[in-house]
Simulated assay, not measured.
Amino acid sequence: MSKNPTIRKFVWGVSFLVALFVNFPIIIINLPFLKQSYTTVLDIGFQIVTCFIYSIFAIHFTYKNIQNKVSKTKQIAFGFMLFVAFVTVLSLINIFVVRLPPKMIPTIMMRGFLIAIIAYFFSRFLIETDKKNEALLENEQLKHENLLNQLNSLKNQLNPHFLFNSLNTLSWLINEDKERSQLYLQKLSQVLRYSLSMQEQPLVFLKEELTLMDNYIFLLQMRFGENLKIVKHIEGSDKFKIPPHSLQLLIENAIKHNIVSSLKPLTIKIEVEPEEKIIKISNSINLKLNSSGTGIGLANLSERFKILVGEEIDISQNEEFTVILPLIS
């Protein structure tokens, strides 16, 4: 039988109800004599206790035999031995303890047979329940593994995109200014170190993500200077979590699709709204020619939030392009 104490108590409860059920006629017949005869009380007590014990053993061994796929012949033989033991014990109690006549033996056999049938079908019910529970548990494990695989796949799509753009920027800086390229390389190494350390974490504190964002913005402003303006309102961000690299991807996305020049500077605003549990990232719109893109980056980010947070990101475009990310307390 299952080691689960709840299942054991359930079996004991069912066994007690079975014992009452098979002895119900005897209880009803002897009910008027309970106060008058001590022997009657003793008789009913022995009947119920013996049937209760027999029911527990019958369920236990029937369950084990079916679960272990014991042959039908062995199951019947073992059930018959248990049945004989029950009939013998209760008959001896009735004859020598309660002093009932041997003619009661057929009723004992009938009760034993009835308990055996109930035990068999109840054991089948337990086994089917176990199978369903195992199937549900296996499905949950498969779902969990599938979500992890999806998440890792999405991470693997995001990281090469970031690395490709960063190396392009570094290549440009090496040709333009070697001293600045050294500083850029130091900051880039910090960003990559963060990326590696957070690779296996589905969620990070928003404060850590904002630190990464500051390093990343530093890298961008080394290239674009005053042409890239960042406005931040991030008070109340300490208690929230977010999927790693979320902010970085949105900033990168704004740079990718918009002109960043002295004539058309790009402004990116980052606002934390603690009461609403959201962070809003918006940017001015000065689209490059042929900047429609594939939409893979935002689609992947939305899918990550759907998997980890249970919510999708909110994207809107009016005078500004705005993405709202849900935060986790």
Rank of each mutant, 00 (worst) to 15 (best):
D43I: 08
N68C: 11
V87T: 03
I44W: 10
Q47L: 12
I93H: 06
H60D: 15
I76C: 01
M109R: 04
S55Q: 02
S91C: 02
T39H: 15
Q75C: 12
P101C: 03
N65G: 14
F52W: 04
P101E: 09
F46Y: 05
C51D: 12
Q75K: 06
A58K: 05
L92F: 11
I108R: 05
S55H: 00
H60L: 11
P101N: 07
V49N: 07
T62I: 01
K64T: 06
F57S: 11
S91Q: 03
K103N: 15
F46K: 07
V70H: 09
K74P: 03
F78N: 01
G79Y: 00
V70W: 09
V41Q: 15
I53H: 06
A77F: 01
I105H: 03
I48R: 02
G45Q: 05
F78E: 07
D43M: 14
F96A: 10
R111V: 06
R99K: 09
F96D: 09
F80Y: 06
T40L: 01
I44V: 11
I108C: 05
F83D: 02
N65M: 13
I44F: 03
F80R: 01
M110L: 14
M109E: 00
L42H: 08
T62H: 00
M81S: 12
F96G: 08
S71A: 08
T39V: 09
P101A: 02
I93C: 09
T40W: 04
N94V: 08
F80G: 02
V89Q: 08
V70M: 06
H60M: 13
F80Q: 04
S91Y: 07
L100W: 10
I105P: 08
L100C: 12
S71T: 08
T88F: 09
F83L: 00
P101Y: 05
M104L: 15
F61L: 11
G45I: 10
I105F: 13
K74A: 11
P101H: 07
V97M: 08
I93R: 04
I93V: 12
I66W: 09
S55R: 00
N94K: 11
Y63Q: 11
L100E: 14
V98P: 01
V49R: 07
T40G: 11
F83Y: 03
I93T: 11
F52R: 04
I53K: 05
K69E: 15
A77P: 06
L82S: 07
K64L: 14
I76Y: 01
P102D: 06
K64I: 13
F96K: 04
F96L: 12
I95W: 12
R111W: 04
M104G: 15
R111A: 10
I95V: 13
I48E: 10
K103C: 14
I44T: 07
F46M: 05
F96Q: 08
A85R: 03
T73Q: 14
T107Y: 14
M110H: 12
R111F: 02
S71G: 05
P106F: 00
V87N: 02
Y63C: 02
T73G: 13
V70D: 10
V49G: 09
C51F: 14
K64Y: 05
T88E: 12
Y54C: 01
T88R: 03
V70Y: 02
K64S: 15
K64F: 14
M109P: 04
C51I: 06
K69V: 06
T88W: 06
M104S: 15
P102F: 07
Y63G: 09
